[in-house]
Design a protein around this nucleic acid. Structure first.
Lengths: 241, 241
DNA sequence: CGAGAAGGGTATGAAACCGCACAAAAGCTG
DNA sequence: CAGCTTTTGTGCGGTTTCATACCCTTCTCG
């Protein structure tokens, strides 16, 4: 009997596969824990595995002289090591665990063999890549024209989408890296959101209170990528829209 | 005899294909002109064709209430309709001709059939998708943390990479859309670059004078994506590095 | 060549952010 | 519970960018 039952899997990609496609990968899947702040790989590393996320969030981070910036994130709707799906061995960015959790790793050789062998699997995973591109594009867009508050709202929403609880473990320091801004700027923005009843903030923790208000603040910086995920992959929208 | 000789093609993707892959596409390729400011498609449109660019530049633009922003660009190193390579029918962004030129269109059905039929073709085109993702990520990164001047420098470099001449036809108005900023802000930034001898600016035109200085100003906002293109696709670096 | 349109330069006050520095909490540890 | 570390709150001056408006220059075309 198979080690892993497809029906008990949280990862949306693994769950959405045809049983045959899943069966071709299943023997090679191996459970891993995703520990807070751990790097699955650094920019420039050779990618040896892809990681299907079951729980938690992994951020794609660009690191330069000017500091670190998040360009995208993935949770149980996706996987880490997207470049490997496209036949590229070297990671262009670093992947850091932003919320601890767990996942399944799969060696790239198996991943590529399976994709070569199945059109349906390819279709599924490449549609996911498309959704990720839209997400990164939205990040570019948000960074270009939206206020710090709007970007914070967007970021909280995206993180919340990928968590099962309303409490997010986040320090201002960490948020400032994700948003590419000053730590004290985050403090001000957090206070504003809290003042408007969108979130409750305590030391090292942000609790989501009102998603509708957050969406209003985020404006067009939030939503497009999420719509694409849900059209393409049955990414579950939080039940308030 | 084939209508189009692979050897006479400027597009890097078409040129880099194996002769067999090229032959499978060649009968379906049709020449098109790319007229200034033309939209190849708008966000939400169904993608019916991909367009391999021979000459000119097409920008991917996100349009919202807050204005329009460029998220990425493609020239003779790439194609328009990337989503179609990933099996998605609907365009997430609008594609606008930023520098006039020409290209080859190919119906998506032929594109997908050819990709399904050839692993080597798939590998090539998906590696290109990867390079595009890195480019968009860099845009996100640049927008997050770099000054208007640095972003302008990056943008001029990227455009220059994709043109054969040093003279770029660009109005400040247009640049302000690309960079997501005010028109008068562009004027100031252009003056600064001109003052430092990096460019010469005349009405509706910017001439590149000193790429090295531009690179210095752009810093880490420029370079990573270009390195990936060149590793993966023999994207020619301008001969000054 | 003269009018109009398109593009570019400049000004001005307000707002958002930055960099930095330091004080106050909150939580942890011995 | 004393002392440390981590996290958060706050202040201040300076810079960048915004929003808006108006004028000037250059080009086009009748």
């Amino acid at each position: 009997m198979a080690q892993h039952q497809q029906s008990s899997i949280r990862n949306r990609l693994l769950a959405a596969m045809s049983p045959e496609d899943f069966a071709s990968l299943e023997p090679h899947l191996e459970r891993v824990k995703l520990e807070m702040r751990e790097f699955l790989h650094r920019a420039g590393d050779t990618i040896t595995h892809v990681t299907f996320i079951e729980e938690g969030i992994v951020s794609e981070v660009a690191e330069t002289d000017e500091g670190r910036f998040e360009v995208g994130m993935n949770g149980f709707e996706g996987l880490v090591g997207i470049s490997a799906l496209l036949g590229v061995e070297t990671a262009p960015h670093s992947s850091m665990v932003q919320a601890s959790g767990r996942g399944f790793v799969l060696p790239v050789e198996q991943m590529q063999a399976a994709m070569d062998g199945s059109r349906t699997l390819r279709m599924l995973l490449l549609r996911f890549v498309h959704a990720y591109i839209v997400q990164v594009s939205q990040t570019a867009h948000a960074n270009a024209g939206y206020s710090l508050e709007a970007r914070l709202a967007r970021w909280v929403l995206m993180t919340h989408d990928r968590m099962e609880v309303d409490e997010l473990s986040l320090t201002h320091e960490f948020l400032s890296i994700m948003l590419g801004t000053r730590r004290s700027g985050v403090t001000i923005a957090v206070q504003t959101l809290e003042g408007n009843g969108m979130i409750r903030a305590t030391r090292g923790r942000i609790t989501v209170l009102d998603r509708e208000k957050l969406k209003e603040l985020a404006g067009d910086a939030y939503g497009l990528a999420e719509k694409v995920y849900s059209n393409i992959l049955q990414f579950p929208q939080k039940g308030d829209a």
